[in-house]
């Protein structure tokens, strides 16, 4: 456990030194500010593009539009930035040889994997939290309606999906030893999940729902309990991925 604490601290310090913390913090802050703003301005923008004399009725934006922007942006821009920032998580240190020193000095290999995953989770949680809080504050300020519900749970689902992708990114790093390779493995998983979604029998258990059903949860179209199976599957997948990563990393020649 002592090894874990030391290595975990080193990981966190490194994320400050390599600007990961700053990058994620600012990008997610910007996303958080943009969401309600875009929701508010979209009708005005649409209206200004219309030719003179023409008019369409655009519904007044509500807090739902703001949160729709939030989930869309975190899922596309946010997740991509997070994965890019962490793409070299294992491979950079392996290729530079700095990890070999620590391993030969007796640092257990599973500690490396688990501490790295924990550090990634901390940064990912921070990023999502920043964006969620900022979006929430501005949404309440701009759209003081009570249309959005279960916001915390909806964001938690997206966070969980991100946690799965980060575990797979780590697995990719152990498998292919290059940062582009681990990104490719993670991208492959997303494609696979999308393909699986074509089979309606599997839909109920597909973790992808955690990243796509968020707005239905917020608007109340999908009950919170309907997503429990997917959360269970995702927990199992994360644990399995971490277990596999530890096994592979133990056998890996560094």
């Amino acid at each position: 456990m002592n090894h874990f604490a030391v290595f975990f601290k080193k990981e966190l310090k490194e994320s400050v030194k390599t600007y990961k913390l700053l990058l994620l913090g600012i990008v997610f802050l910007i996303l958080g500010i943009m969401n309600p703003l875009v929701a508010k301005l979209t009708p005005d923008l649409l209206a200004s593009f219309l030719p003179e004399g023409m008019s369409i009725t655009i519904p007044e934006p509500s807090s739902l539009d703001s949160w729709a922007q939030f989930f869309k942006n975190i899922q596309q821009m946010g997740l991509i930035v997070v994965l890019l920032v962490f793409s070299g998580v294992l491979t950079n240190e392996l290729s530079r040889g700095t990890l070999v020193l620590l391993l030969t000095k007796g640092l257990p290999r599973q500690t490396v994997i688990l501490a790295k995953y924990a550090a990634m989770l901390v940064l990912w949680t921070m990023s999502v939290a920043i964006s969620h809080v900022v979006t929430w504050v501005y949404t309440v300020y701009l759209f003081p309606d009570n249309l959005s519900q279960n916001l915390f749970f909806a964001t938690f689902c997206l966070w969980f999906f991100g946690a799965l992708l980060l575990a797979v990114l780590l697995l990719g790093g152990t498998l292919v030893s290059s940062s582009y390779g681990s990104l490719l493995v993670t991208g492959g998983l997303v494609v696979l999940l999308n393909l699986l979604n074509l089979f309606s029998a599997l839909k109920e258990y597909n973790p992808l729902a955690l990243a796509t059903k968020n707005m239905d949860v917020v608007s109340g179209a999908v009950a919170v309990s309907e997503l429990y199976p997917q959360i269970g599957i995702t927990v199992a997948l994360i644990l399995a991925t971490l277990g596999l990563t530890v096994l592979l990393f133990r056998r890996k020649l560094v």
């Binding site: 600012i26 990008v27 802050l29 910007i30 703003l37």
Partner: peptide, 14 residues
């Protein structure tokens, strides 16, 4: 301005 000021500060910092 409550949106634009923090937005500009964040982008400039980056």
């Amino acid at each position: 301005w409550p949106f634009l000021v923090p937005l500009i500060i964040a982008q400039l910092t980056l």
